[in-house]
């Protein structure tokens, strides 16, 4: 995988800005409410996908645990949104911050293991977080630590920011936040940490010989990736608003996430957008608008699985060519 490094170079600011302007001003008049809902989910999911792509593509860390900070960010932001009047952008930062702390904890085993073992360890941690979230459940307007309503009539939707209560306004808000997160990722990739990560990915001995603290930069990568996923989680809560479960944050979601990220490509931030497109637009499009049957939903997932297998076979061959499998 050494030749395929997650890069900021292909993410030209002009194209990104053009895309953002299109999303903010053209898409709401082109697509109906259902698709705006799906595109909102795509913008959210692209941040999580970017966090996985950055870890894997830039630092060489195969984490299957990115759904954990995604879920933690969602839980913290939803709970605080019900309990406080903190402005929503700050809530997102808090949710991302708490997720980053958990991300650092997930990153600790990364200092000892790598490759398949890291994937398994991070998956186990994700399962642990899934169990905790399942027990806690997501706040829905009630009292207490969990914020769970005692009766159905007490349930309330997750509040959205006052300036983005409608679906279209919220879509625009999510797009702007996603752009900020992508710019944050680009800023890191193009600066000292990004170069250090590329060096660690290429060769840890070489990174050490360059004066790079491999431990510190791996932890930094886990922290940033978790922050990105945590912010996405915070946006997810106010996006869905009602009856939020752990479906987005469970082990199946973890495997699905890595599958679509590999399908989208780990070579650049565009791959994250493509992965999110596969997961949140293409799949609903195939199942709802073209094929229209649950069977074809499973069929589409099978196609994703086949794509993942092809990707892994190609990766193995590439590694074999480079003599990395000895």
């Amino acid at each position: 995988m050494v030749g395929r490094v997650f890069s900021h170079r292909a993410f030209q600011p002009t194209i990104a800005a053009g895309l953002m302007v299109f999303a903010l001003f053209a898409m709401p008049s082109i697509f109906d409410a259902t698709w705006i809902f799906n595109f909102t989910q795509m913008a959210i999911y692209s941040m999580v996908a970017a966090s996985v792509g950055m870890l894997y593509g830039r630092v060489g860390l195969v984490s299957l645990g990115q759904v954990a900070p995604y879920g933690i960010g969602a839980w913290v932001t939803i709970r605080l949104a019900f309990a406080t009047d903190i402005p929503y952008p700050i809530l997102l930062a808090i949710g991302g911050g708490v997720a980053a702390i958990i991300g650092l904890l997930i990153g600790l085993p990364a200092l000892r293991v790598s490759g398949l073992y890291l994937a398994l360890v991070t998956l186990m941690l994700a399962v642990g977080v899934e169990v905790i979230l399942f027990r806690l459940k997501f706040a829905n307007g009630g009292p207490g630590f969990n914020g769970l309503a005692l009766t159905m009539s007490d349930r309330a939707p997750v509040p959205r920011p006052a300036f983005a209560e409608g679906d279209i306004a919220y879509f625009r808000f999510v797009v702007i936040v996603a752009c900020v997160i992508f710019m944050l990722a680009v800023a890191f990739l193009a600066s000292k940490p990004g170069r250090a990560w590329a060096s660690v990915h290429q060769s840890e001995p070489s990174a050490l010989a360059s004066g790079i603290s491999v431990t510190r930069y791996k932890l930094m990568a886990f922290g940033l990736a978790a922050f990105m996923a945590g912010v996405a989680g915070g946006l997810y809560g106010a996006h869905v608003q009602w009856s939020i479960g752990v479906d987005q944050f469970n082990r199946q979601a973890a495997l699905f996430l890595i599958a679509v990220v590999l399908m989208g490509g780990i070579g650049s931030l565009w791959g994250a957008l493509l992965a999110a497109f596969f997961a949140t637009i293409l799949l609903p499009f195939l199942t709802q608008n073209v094929i229209g049957h649950q069977f074809w939903n499973d069929f589409a997932l099978t196609i994703f699985g086949i794509g993942l297998m092809i990707n892994l076979i190609q990766t193995t061959r590439a590694m074999d060519k480079k003599g990395l499998l000895e």
Partner: peptide
């Protein structure tokens, strides 16, 4: 190193700069 271990995804300048800044 015996086997060259330059950072393939970075430019020549960035490769040398990475060592300098650390």
């Amino acid at each position: 190193f015996q086997t060259v271990q330059t950072i393939e995804s970075l430019t020549v300048y960035e490769n040398v700069r990475t060592v300098h800044e650390h």
